[in-house]
Amino acid sequence: MNRCLITLPSLTLAQKARSLLQANGIASSVERLSPERAEKGCGWGIVLSCALAQQAVRVLELSNLPYRKLEPLR
């Protein structure tokens, strides 16, 4: 499975994003970002299948949940 990462401003928002996506049938997991991925030193994100990433982003936008970036995980 190709995995994608959606970065979020905080752990709590990452957890909230995971719950929202789960309610919409999209599985994801909360991950701590490596320092080079985090914009300001420490960060959090959710990892999910790239096949569902665009759908996930739409869910987050409809819920006004601010995400920072969507990128493929290598």
């Binding site: 401003p9 905080s10 752990l11 709590t12 985090a38 300001k40 030193g41 420490c42």
Partner: peptide, 17 residues
Amino acid sequence: GSGSDSASPRMPDELPE
């Protein structure tokens, strides 16, 4: 400490952190 954006000298904007 808030566990995120640690390189910033300020508290994050987002609740609850």
